[in-house]
Design a protein around this nucleic acid. Sequence first.
DNA 1: GTTCTTACA
DNA 2: TGTAAGAA
Length: 134
Amino acid sequence: MRIGDIAQRAGVSTRSLRYYEEQGLLASERTSTGQRTYPESAVERVRLIQQFFTAGLASRTIQRVLPCVDSGEASAEAFALLEAERARITAAMADLAAARDALDRMIDIAHNPTAEHCPALREPAWAPLESLAG
DNA sequence: GTTCTTACA
DNA sequence: TGTAAGAA
């Protein structure tokens, strides 16, 4: 398949695919005219690369991890890297959950305004100035 | 019409 | 990463 096909099927730009290749994440063959050619499996590989980027892995890290995907086994260093990334993602998930919980509390307050949380409810807007001064 | 490389924002 | 230019 040509670069445009892969891009469309994997949902990324052709620019990204060329970038991945430059970073050593994605291989391709060339036709006699220089156009890149990819096997069907490239689509799935690109999606995996996307997931890793989304999960916060650096391209350099992805570059070290992908060989494991290809070989089906990990060297000692690669294994340590996988565990480290897993731990980082787990921690990131906890942070996200905490942020979500905070938003949940804010949403709840927004739905049930109380004088404690909403200053605007403490002072009647229609109160005469004298009553405020006095 | 697509893709390629190179380069700039 | 997006986009532009000029060539294939």
